[in-house]
Design a protein around this nucleic acid. Structure first.
Lengths: 323, 323
DNA sequence: CTGAAAGCGCTTACAG
DNA sequence: CTGAAAGCGCTTACAG
C-alpha cells in the first residue's frame, strides 16, 4: 500500500539505488534521470520513510529541544515562542522537533539520554543555561552535538551558544534613563542568581560608573524601598508590572513620579497601562539561529564552538518619561 | 560500537528473536530466559534503536502535538502547560512527543501530513477546535488516530475529545456570583466566536434564566458599559485583568463596587491585585487524559470515539465579594 | 518455549 | 553515470 523507493524505481525504469541518489540530488546522477525519478515520485505520491532512512544512514533528521526543569515554564512566554521559532526553522531544513521536559534534573537527564541513545534525535537545543547542569555535562562529555540558548562562563569554548548581549542591554537601560534626565537609578530584581541577572546588572553597574552616577540594587519584596531613585531598571516584564502596582500602592505613580524600563518585551509589556518600555530580545531570531548552528554542528561536529549574539531593540512605550 | 540485540543474544546465549520477545515481555518466553536477557542487557548497556523498531514493527512510538495556526500562542500559558503535561504522560508510555506548528492552515496541514506519511508519528493530539479545520478533516478522512483537546459540534461521533465542561463552568460562574447576592450580571467577551465562548456564555445564560435574573452580554472595548451590573463573568483571565484596569479608570473598583470572576486560572490570575477568582481548568489532567486516550486509540483504532470531560475547580481569590 | 529466516525501506561502498 | 548487493537493527510468522 505504501509507496516505496522500489515502486518509484520500477516506474522510472531505474534501480532503487539510483532513486535514492536522485532524491538526495547526488551529482553522480544525470539531470535526465533525476527528472524521470521526480516525475515518478510525483505520480506515485512517494514519501520517504523516516525510520528506514534513519536506520540506513544513521541520521535521525530530528532534534530535541530541552526545557528547563522548572515548574513555571508556562508563565514565561519565552518558551512557547522560541519553540515555535525553532520548529519553523527546523521545518525549512526538513527536520522534526521533539521535546524533552521534566520536573527534576534527573528526569530531564534520563529523558535526554534515552532520546539520544534510541537514536531519535541527532542533537539538542538546550533552552536554559544554569550553572553546573547535568544535562550539559552529559552532552559535552559524550560529544553530542548541541547548542545552548543563553550564556555560560565555564567551558564556553566547548559550547555553541546563541544569546543576546545581556550586559549591553543592562548598560543601555541605564543610558536610556540617564538620557531622559534621571540621575538616581535603581536596578530591581527578585533573584540574585542566574547569568541573565548577573549580566544585565553588571552592564547597569558599569554604565552607571562611567556616567558618574550611583545605582543601587533593590531586592523586590512586599515593601519596595527605592529611596530617591526616579529611574528603575527591572529584571523582566512580569516583575515590572508587579513593581508598578506595588509602587502605586505606595503612592508612587509610573511614569509621573518614576520611570520604569524592563526586559523581554513579552505579552506582559502591553497588557495593562502603563505599557512597558522594554527591550525586545528577538526570540524568533534566537530560535532560528539555534537551529542553524545545530544543523551546522551536525554536519561539522569538530568545528569551532562559536557564540552567536542576537541583537535586541528598545521598545519605548508608556512607563518612561523625561524628568 | 552500539550494542544491538545480537550482542545481547550472544551474551545471553539465545537467539536475537528471543531477546526481542523478552524485551516485549512476551508470554511465550520463560521467566528464566527473560532474566538472562535482562541481565545481559544491563551488562551491555543495551538501548533499543527506535528507527529499527519502527521500520520492523510499523509503529513509530511517537505522537505529534498540533498547535493552533495563530500568532499569539505564546501569550497563552495553556499551550506550554499542556505540552509539558502531554510529554510527561507520553514518557510514562515510552512515547516521544514531536510538534507541529505553523502560521497558516496550509502550512500546518502540510506539516501534519509529512509527519504522518514519513511515519514519524503514530497519531496526533490537536490543541484547538475551531470549526471547519483542514487538519481535522484530513485526520478524519484518512482515518489517522487523533484526539482533540476542546469541543466540536460537527462529526463529534468520529472524534475522541478531551475537554472541560465549559457550559457548566459558565453556569457555575453565574451561580457563584448570585450566591454572593449579585442580582445584575454581565458576561464580558472580546470575541463572539469559538466553542469556548459559546459554551461558557450559554451556560451563563441558561443559569441566569433559571435563577430568574437577567444577564447581558458586553463586548469588551475601550469604554466598558456594564450598566447596573455588579457581577461580571469574563471570558478569560487575561481579559479580566484588562477589564479590571479599564473599570478602575472609569472609577469603578473591583471588588468593592463590582465582582469579577473569570476562567483558566493562568499566571495572569495571580499577577497583580486583586488576584482573580477564576476556574482552574486542570490543564495537567487534560494533557494526561489526551495521551491516554490516544494510546488507547492506537491500540484499538476502531473503538468508539468518546469524549472525556475533565473536572474544573473554582479558585476564590480577591476579585469577588458578597454584596 | 525457542530458533532460523525473511522482511521492513532505505543507503552506500564496490564495480563497471 | 548507474546497478547489484550487503547491511542498518529490529519484528514476526513459521516450524518445531
Amino acid at each position: 500500500m505504501t509507496v516505496t523507493i522500489k515502486d518509484v524505481a520500477k516506474l522510472a525504469g531505474v534501480n532503487a539505488s539510483t532513486v535514492s541518489r536522485a532524491i538526495h540530488d547526488s551529482k553522480a546522477i544525470s539531470d535526465k534521470t533525476k527528472e524521470k525519478v521526480k516525475k515518478a515520485m510525483l505520480e506515485l505520491g512517494y514519501s520517504r520513510n523516516a525510520a528506514a532512512q534513519t536506520l540506513a544512514s544513521g541520521k535521525a533528521g530530528a532534534i530535541g529541544v530541552v526545557f528547563p526543569p522548572i515548574e513555571n515554564k508556562s508563565e514565561q512566554p519565552f518558551f512557547m515562542k522560541i519553540l515555535t521559532a525553532i520548529n519553523e526553522a527546523a521545518r525549512q531544513n526538513n527536520i522534526t522537533v521533539s521535546i524533552a521536559s521534566g520536573h527534576s534534573n534527573d528526569e530531564l537527564l534520563s529523558q535526554v539520554k534515552v532520546m539520544y541513545q534510541e537514536k531519535r534525535v541527532d542533537g539538542f537545543i538546550v533552552l536554559y543555561a544554569g550553572e553546573e547542569d547535568d544535562v550539559r555535562s552529559y552532552l559535552i562529555t559524550d560529544r553530542i552535538p548541541f547548542v545552548i540558548v543563553g550564556s555560560t562562563i565555564e567551558r564556553a569554548n566547548e559550547i555553541t551558544a546563541v544569546d543576546n548581549n545581556n550586559q549591553l542591554m543592562g548598560s543601555e537601560a541605564a543610558s536610556y534613563l540617564a538620557s531622559l534626565g534621571h540621575k538616581q537609578l535603581a536596578f530591581i530584581s527578585n533573584t540574585d542568581s542566574g547569568e541573565v541577572f548577573h549580566e544585565r546588572y553588571q552592564g547597569f553597574v558599569l554604565k552607571m560608573q562611567s556616567l558618574g552616577l550611583k545605582g543601587r540594587l533593590v531586592k523586590s519584596k512586599n515593601k519596595l524601598d527605592i529611596g530617591h531613585a526616579t529611574g528603575l531598571v527591572v529584571l523582566d516584564d512580569i516583575l515590572a508590572i508587579k513593581v508598578i502596582q506595588r509602587l502605586s500602592e505606595q503612592g508612587i505613580s509610573v511614569p509621573a513620579d518614576v520611570s520604569v524600563i524592563s526586559f523581554n518585551n513579552s505579552v506582559f509589556a502591553s497588557l495593562i497601562h502603563p505599557y512597558l518600555t522594554t527591550f525586545d530580545i528577538n526570540i524568533r531570531q534566537l530560535g532560528h539561529r539555534s537551529v542553524q548552528k545545530l544543523v551546522h554542528l551536525l554536519a561539522y561536529p569538530d568545528d569551532f564552538k562559536e557564540k552567536v549574539t542576537v541583537p535586541f531593540e528598545l521598545k519605548v512605550r508608556e512607563s518612561t518619561k523625561a524628568v
